[in-house]
Design a protein around this nucleic acid. Sequence first.
DNA 1: TTATTATTGACTTATACTGACCAAAAATAT
DNA 2: ATATTTTTGGTCAGTATAAGTCAATAATAA
Lengths: 163, 163
Amino acid sequence: MSLPSSSLTKIIEEYITELLEENEIGEVSLRRKDLAERFGCVPSQINYVLRSRFAPENGFLVESQRGGHGYIKVIQLTFNNCDEEVVHLADLVGNAITEQEARKLLVNLKNREVISPRERLIIEVALRSQEENGRSLFDISPYRRDLMRAELLKKILTSLALG
Amino acid sequence: MSLPSSSLTKIIEEYITELLEENEIGEVSLRRKDLAERFGCVPSQINYVLRSRFAPENGFLVESQRGGHGYIKVIQLTFNNCDEEVVHLADLVGNAITEQEARKLLVNLKNREVISPRERLIIEVALRSQEENGRSLFDISPYRRDLMRAELLKKILTSLALG
DNA sequence: TTATTATTGACTTATACTGACCAAAAATAT
DNA sequence: ATATTTTTGGTCAGTATAAGTCAATAATAA
């Protein structure tokens, strides 16, 4: 019966999200040290929040610079063709997907202009690379490779959908 | 909480970039001492800006001459097509590349509009996915992960170049 | 309990900026 | 012509600042 204790991570996440919303352009620059001070935590906590909440899989990009005048910039990508379509297709991927099925799906997406030819190329290269590593470097079973392929594909598709 | 203040380096960088844009030909001649005076800094600061912002990997060449009527000339390289440049950048990746270095490179490519934000997002997701697998699933050493990261990045960049 | 997620702090790395000293080219004096 | 002086720019090492990494620990969820 305890109240949901709002975690620090959640609070910081909400703060950054708020800043992003205020800032029309969908990006905001931060000082890691200042943020840490404001929320009374250690600076590396900020890295944890960024890693776990503002990851590319979630449609965010993070740029940063160390040293004097250092900063952390969080960018929220917004695509105009932000489709439930893509989300739906991510569902279609399911838990496991073969190379053939994956390729078919990508061709389909390309034909419907949900992704560009270049984007399709990048995705295919990434999938193939993982396949190769799984097969010859780590000796992963075919089925497990199908699982991993589905994982990667879903991550990529949802990252595009969330943008 | 203060926003990151603009650094001297950034200001000088912007000034030079502006001069380059005004000057159709894509090159501009400077006096180190004058620049230093204008921005109230030590002359070697100008060298720092040139080294860190107008380096060949950013698509610039710098020529200079000492002595009376000495000068510094900044030349902006123009590529016939972006893809030519992508091949060059694949070389820059080298055999091994850290997460930080990879991100810097992608930011650079994005700023120069060699890749789109969506393309960058996909690439980041792919790199991160491989990193995660390598780290927690297969227990790959950090250095080997740098090797694998370089491999994947080069595959993607060259595929874009050849596509 | 066991697994996952959150938090911390010691250590590492990257960037900005300065100033003292070095090197080269042109102008001037001999 | 040659040497000297003046006018540029170059290099490097030191200092300050700020972010990143990693592994150990704590808290929470399953």
